[in-house]
Write a protein that binds this DNA or RNA. Structure first.
Lengths: 225, 225, 225, 225
DNA sequence: AATGAATGAGGGTTCATTCAT
DNA sequence: CATGAATGAACCCTCATTCAT
C-alpha cells in the first residue's frame, strides 16, 4: 500500500512518463499530496458542494490554474481523497487482522482499526462519510466498490462470530449499526473532551459485541407494547 | 403539535392578519406545506448546497419568484424543514413516553419513536441528519437548541436506566452511539429490502441495551491485545 | 393653482367619474396625496432607481397592489411628484411677482420664492433636481416643458434687468449659474445649521446681482494669466 | 499624480506581484483604465443605480465574469472612478496654485481649474456630482474625505480673500454657492453651444468675485419687501 | 376600495474550467 | 511548471407589474 495518495494513482499530467522514478515525479507527488491534504481540510469544513476551487486555491497558496495542472477537476479531487482514504484504511485493516484467528478479537480489531484511523484522520473520514453520494459514474463506482469490499470484510467477521458462537441475528443490520455508531462520531467527537481511539473502540466493541452475543442471556427483551 | 409545518411558523407573508384561521390562511398554509414537502425531497436528493432554487421551482411547479413569496430565502426553507421535523419528533416522543415508567421500556420507546418517524419521513430525516451544519447564526442556533433538547431527553433516559440497574458507563458515548446507529440508516435503509421500523427498533434496542446492561455478564471483554 | 397634487391630475382610476365633486373623489385625492408625500420622501432618500415599489408599500402602509390602484406605474408616481412641485412653485412665483415692477426686485423675488419653496419642500425639490433625467417620453416631455417655462421666466427677469441697467452679459449663463447656486443646496443645506430661506435668498441675490451689475465698477477682472 | 486611474490603486487581482512595473502590470492597468472609462460613460448616461453590470459588459465588450476579474464589485467601480477623478482634480489644482500669491487670482485659478477639468472630463464629473450619496461605508468615507479636503482648499482661498479685502460674508455659503454654480453645469453644458472652459471660468469668477467684493459698493440691496 | 398571490425579466455575483504563455 | 486572463453558465434573489377576488 502506498503511503502517498499520489503515488499509485493515474493522473492527468503524469510527469516523467519517459523517465519513471525521476526526481521530477517525486516532487510532483509531494506537491500533489500537499494539495490533497489542504483540499481534504476545505471539503471537511465547508462541504464539497459549498467549497469552491478558489477556496482550494487560497488554502493551498497555488493559483487556480495551477490546481488544474495537478487535477483535472474538482470531482477528481474528491475521488482521489476518498479512494486513498478507503484504500489506506483497508490496507491497515488487513495488516491488523493478519495472524489473528479468534472471531471476537477480529471484530474488535476491526473496530479499533476503523476508529484509530478515523480519529487520526478525522477530516478525511468526515469527507468520506459525509460526501458519500456526490461522486457520479466512474468515480462514484470505483469508490463504492472499495466501500463494498470494506463492508464485506466486516460482514464476514461478524458472520464468523455468529458461527463460532452459534447465535442468530441479521448480520446486515448488525454491521450497518456498527458502522453507524462509528461513522457518526464525525458529528460529535472532540479530541479534547472525548476518550482516545482505543478507549472508544473498546466501548463501542463492548456495546456491539455484548449487544449481539449477550442478547440471549437477558430476560426483558422485545418490542415495547 | 401541529400536523403542518406551516401552521405554527411565522412567515414572511402571513395572510389574513385581520382574520386568523380564515380560508386564505388555510390555503396559504396548504401551499406552503406542499412547497416544503417538495423542497425536502430535493434537498434530500441533491443536498442543500447542490440544490438550487430553480430545482425547487421545477419540483414545485411554481415560479422562482413565487417561491420567494412564501420563503424569504433558501436558508429559511431548510430551517423550516429542520425545525418542523425536530419539533414533530420531539412532540411525538413526549406523547409516546407518557405514563411509562420502566426505564428500559422508556429507552425502547425512544428508539422506536425515532425509527418510526425516521422511516415514515425518510427524506426529512436525511435532510435533518445530513444538513446538520449548514444553517448559520439565528437559524442554526434555533435548530441546534431543539436538537440539544432532544439529545438531553435521550441522555436522561439512559441515565435513569443506569441508576435503575446499577451499571456504570459513559452516558454520553452510549447515547451518541445510539444516535449513530439510528441516524446512519439514511445511508442504507431500503423499505423494500429492510425490516420495518418496529423490527428495526427492536433489533437496535436489543443491541444497545444488551450492549450496555449485559456487559458485566460476559467474560471475554476488553481491548484486543 | 390646486393645493393638492391629486386634484388637477388625470389618473388611472379616477373615481366618481359619474359624480364629480363627490365625497368619494375627495377621499381618493386625500389618499393619493398621502401616498405622493411618502413616495417623495422615499425617492429623496434612496433615489428613484434604487427605490422599489416595495419600499413605497412599506412607507405608505399600503399593499403593493393597492399602490397600483392609485398609480399605474412607478414612473407615473415620479411624474406626478415632479409636475406638481414645478406647477406649485411656478404658481407661487406668479403670485409673488404680481404688481412688482422694479427689475431688481423682481429678480430678488424670484430667488426668494425659489428658495422658500425649496427649503419648505426640501424632499420634493431634491427629487426634482436630482431625478431630472429619468422620466422618458411623454412624462419627461411634460415635465421638461414646465421646467423650460420656469427657466424662461427667470431669463426674462434677468434680461429685463440688463435692459434697465444697460449692462451686457450672457443671460443664459447668468441664469443657469443662479439655478446652480440655488438647486445645489439640496446637497448641503441643513435646517439647523444654515440660515433660513429669506437670509439665504438675500445672500444669493446679493452675490448674483452684485456679480452681474457691479462688474463694471471693479478693477481687477478677467482671466488669470 | 498618476495619469491613470489604475496605476495608484490597489486591486483585486494585482498581477506581477513579484515583478513590479512589469509588462503584465502595464497591460493590466491599460485594460483596467479602459473599463473604467467605459463604466464612467455608462454611469453618466444611465445613472449608477440604473446601470447594470451587463450594461458595462456590453459597453466594454468584456464578459460579465471578466469584469469581475478586474473589479470586485459594481460599488468599487464607482469608488475607483470617483476617487481617481477627485484626486486628479486636486492634484491639478495644487499645481495650478503653485507660486501664485494674489488672493483673487487664486480664487480665479480655482474656478478655472475646476471648470477646465469638469468640461474636459464631463462624464466623470457628472458621475462625481450626481452619484454623490450612493457609496456607503468604507468607500463612501474615503471619497467624502477627499471631497472635504477639496472643499476646504476652496474655503481657505475665499477666506484669504476676505482678509485681504477686509470684507465680511459667510464663507461657507459663498463657497457652496460657487460649487453649485460650477457643478450644476453638468445639467446644461453643451460643448457646441456654450463657451469654452476658460470663458466660462471667467464669467463665473466675475459673478462670484463681484458678488462678494462689489457688495458694499452698490446701493439697493437686501431683501425684497 | 384594496389585496393576496403570482410571475417573467433581470439584478449583482460566483462558479468550474480553459488556454496562451 | 505554473499562471494571468478570461468566459459561459448558473447562482440566489428582487424587480415592477398584474389579476382574480
Amino acid at each position: 500500500m502506498s503511503a502517498s495518495p499520489a503515488a499509485a494513482l493515474t493522473r492527468r499530467n503524469a510527469p516523467g512518463l519517459g523517465r519513471p522514478n525521476g526526481h521530477a515525479r517525486e516532487r510532483f507527488d509531494r506537491r500533489l499530496d500537499g494539495i490533497l491534504a489542504h483540499a481534504t481540510a476545505v471539503f471537511c469544513d465547508k462541504g464539497y458542494d459549498a467549497a469552491s476551487m478558489r477556496d482550494l486555491s487560497r488554502a493551498t497558496g497555488m493559483s487556480l490554474a495551477g490546481l488544474y495542472y495537478y487535477f483535472e477537476s474538482k470531482e477528481r479531487l474528491l475521488y482521489l481523497i476518498q479512494k486513498h482514504t478507503f484504500e489506506t484504511i483497508l490496507a491497515s485493516l488487513r495488516q491488523s487482522l493478519e495472524g489473528v484467528t479468534d472471531a471476537e478479537q477480529r471484530v474488535r480489531l476491526f473496530v479499533r482499526n476503523h476508529l484509530e484511523y478515523f480519529i487520526a484522520n478525522q477530516k478525511a473520514m468526515k469527507v468520506l462519510s459525509h460526501e458519500d453520494e456526490v461522486l457520479r459514474n466512474g468515480y462514484g463506482g470505483e469508490v463504492r466498490a472499495i466501500k463494498r469490499a470494506y463492508y464485506r470484510v466486516c460482514l464476514g467477521l461478524v458472520e464468523d462470530l455468529q458461527r463460532a458462537r452459534g447465535v442468530k441475528f441479521s448480520g446486515r443490520i448488525a454491521v450497518l449499526s456498527l458502522f453507524g455508531m462509528m461513522n457518526w462520531i464525525y458529528t460529535w467527537y472532540h479530541p479534547r473532551v472525548d476518550a482516545d481511539a482505543d478507549a472508544l473502540a473498546c466501548q463501542m466493541s463492548d456495546i456491539f459485541l455484548n449487544g449481539l452475543l449477550g442478547a440471549d442471556r437477558r430476560k426483558t427483551r422485545g418490542r415495547p407494547s
